[in-house]
Design a protein around this nucleic acid. Structure first.
Length: 493
RNA sequence: GCGGCAGUGGUCUAGCGGUAGGACACGGGCCCCCCAAGCCCGUAGCCCGGGUUCGAAUCCCGGCUGCCGCACCA
């Protein structure tokens, strides 16, 4: 229980200060389930909003919201029913469990005999309605990814986009996987949040992304599956040298990196690792994981960028008997897939999918933001969140708990909130203690009301990272907090 | 899921068969004009269930949870 390691200390802080904790604690807990507290939920909400903006405003994608329960047909077609399933055998002697295809006739531990293989599916199964029979529409599953909701709605989405490709669809939501034994805290959860984009593109257009030039100079750290070491390379060069298969994949990998940097994941702790062929999910043609270098867990996947090919659309077309292929329009530029003289040619769009594990990103952010130093013999713990994700944007503090300062401080507090800035008020304990409280939850700025405030209506803004202060007038405070606060401290760091 | 170890206020810990003590945090007060100072007061705990015993936080069994190793992580 001792929080000896720095990394464990972060999670201790997260629990203590209301970011995240084990679910069902009063009943002893349940492995693989966590709840977000007041600050964690705020942090998560901010990350999700930034993500949403990044893809809607940034890419012009629309967001949809589909059911978290899926009927059997969906996961039958998607392959999850079969491929998410492991045949498990149990040793009759020592009761160890093994995957049937990973093990021989006898238990490798004790040499005991195995039971008959039994199915273990990673999907949570449920039933629809008061039906007790097996099969049919009564059988349902909690989705293991949000993606299927976007695939099964493809015909309507295509019509919505007036039959024009490419287009992208995003979705943020919960997904569920009944892990055999989840560990590693919020790295492996049984219920978690995914933020996924499905980009539908004609196969012969995968190598010409209209905005590729905007990201072509982005330098990324790549670990291709046929190489033993990592290389640092621009996206442009990686695509030219076929290290990354095509522009669409390269473009979205670069965008993933840009998003992660934007919310404050240090780029030097990031790499993109290409899946080995035997490691690839059943639906993937190619897949690169954006991995975060954790002090605690080593390289951890936080985003997967997969080329799902036409796997899902063709599978649902077959199963549902609804043709989701699209006609290939041979316009001015000739299309590779379109053969001459064949006017009725149609193809299944391919899907490029960046899939973000929000909970893991939150862990990565907590771990990499955590900073500890000694100030005057006391430990100072700081979460160095970027302002765009900080749960509390500013704290308003009267220098002393005196009536005249408190009244003025409450006035300023209300004023700041009326400008749409989320603030916290705290008058309890010494000013130093209150600064430390805010440091620990990552509040970037503290506004302090002192006796000078009463004289000339100015307050100080204290910067979390430099602990420096500048004095501004109350009148210009909202504008400063909204706008160029950072610049007021950049030279003093 | 298997094996080993462990679970005491919010956090960290002392106690290891006679009924819980500390530190920090938190709340109230005093003091205080800027980075967890000091003083006073207060709130708050033996993971859950069974058993052994006159008596269990302490010993035994089961469960849950966590850590380490193995397996699993489509």
């Amino acid at each position: 229980m001792t929080a000896a390691r720095r990394e464990d200390e972060v999670m201790e802080l997260a629990r203590r200060r209301g970011f995240i904790w084990a679910a069902f604690e009063i009943y002893g807990g349940a492995s693989g389930f966590f709840d977000y507290g007041p600050l964690g939920a705020a942090l998560k909400r901010k990350i999700e909003s930034l993500w949403r903006e990044f893809y809607t405003l940034g890419e012009g994608f629309y967001e949809i919201e589909t059911t978290t329960i899926g009927i059997r047909d969906v996961f039958d077609a998607s392959g999850h029913l079969e491929c998410f399933m492991d045949k498990m055998v149990e040793c009759k002697k020592c009761h160890s469990l093994f995957r049937a295809d990973h093990v021989g006739e006898r238990c490798p531990d004790c040499g005991g005999e195995f039971s008959e293989p039994q199915d273990f599916n990673l999907m949570f199964k449920t039933r629809i309605g008061a039906v007790t029979s097996v099969g049919g529409k009564s059988e349902a599953y909690l989705r293991p990814e949000t993606a299927q909701g976007m695939f099964v709605n493809f015909p309507r989405l295509l019509r919505f986009h007036r039959n024009k490709l490419p287009f992208g669809i995003i979705q943020i939501g919960r997904a569920y996987r009944n892990e055999i034994s989840p560990r590693q805290g919020i790295i492996r959860l049984r219920e978690f949040t995914l933020a996924e984009a499905e980009v539908f593109v004609l196969p012969h257009e995968k190598n010409k992304h209209p905005r590729f030039h905007e990201v072509e100079d982005v330098v990324m750290r790549l670990k291709p599956n046929y190489m033993d070491e990592e290389i640092e390379i621009t996206v442009k060069e990686a695509v030219e040298r076929k290290i990354i298969a095509h522009e669409y994949l390269g473009y979205h990998m670069a965008r993933v990196q840009q998003f992660l940097e934007k919310i404050g994941i240090p780029v030097e702790r990031l790499r993109f690792r290409q899946h080995e062929h035997d490691e690839m999910a059943h639906y993937a043609e190619d897949c690169w994981d954006a991995e975060f270098l954790s002090d605690r867990f080593g390289w951890v996947e936080i985003v997967g960028i997969a080329d799902r090919g036409d796997y899902d659309l063709s599978a649902h077309s077959r199963k549902a008997k609804v043709d989701m292929s699209v006609p290939v329009v041979t316009g001015g530029e000739e299309a590779e897939g379109a053969r001459e003289g064949n006017e009725n040619l149609s193809v299944f769009p391919h899907v490029i999918e960046p899939s973000y594990g929000i909970d893991r990103i939150i862990y990565a952010l907590l771990e990499s933001s955590f900073y500890k130093e000694e100030v005057r013999g006391e430990v100072r713990r700081v979460l160095r969140f970027k302002r765009c994700v900080a749960p509390v944007e500013v704290a308003v503090l009267p220098l002393l708990n005196r009536k005249e300062l408190v009244n003025k401080a409450k006035e300023v507090f209300q004023m700041i909130r009326s400008h749409g800035i989320f603030a916290e008020y705290d008058a309890s304990g010494s000013i130093g203690r209150r600064y430390r409280r805010q440091d620990e939850i990552g509040t970037p700025y503290c506004v302090t009301i002192d006796y000078e405030t009463l004289e000339n209506d100015t307050v100080t803004i204290r910067d979390r990272d430099s602990m420096k202060q500048v004095r501004v007038s109350i009148a210009e405070l909202p504008a400063k907090l909204r706008g160029d606060v950072e610049s007021m401290f950049t030279f003093s760091r």
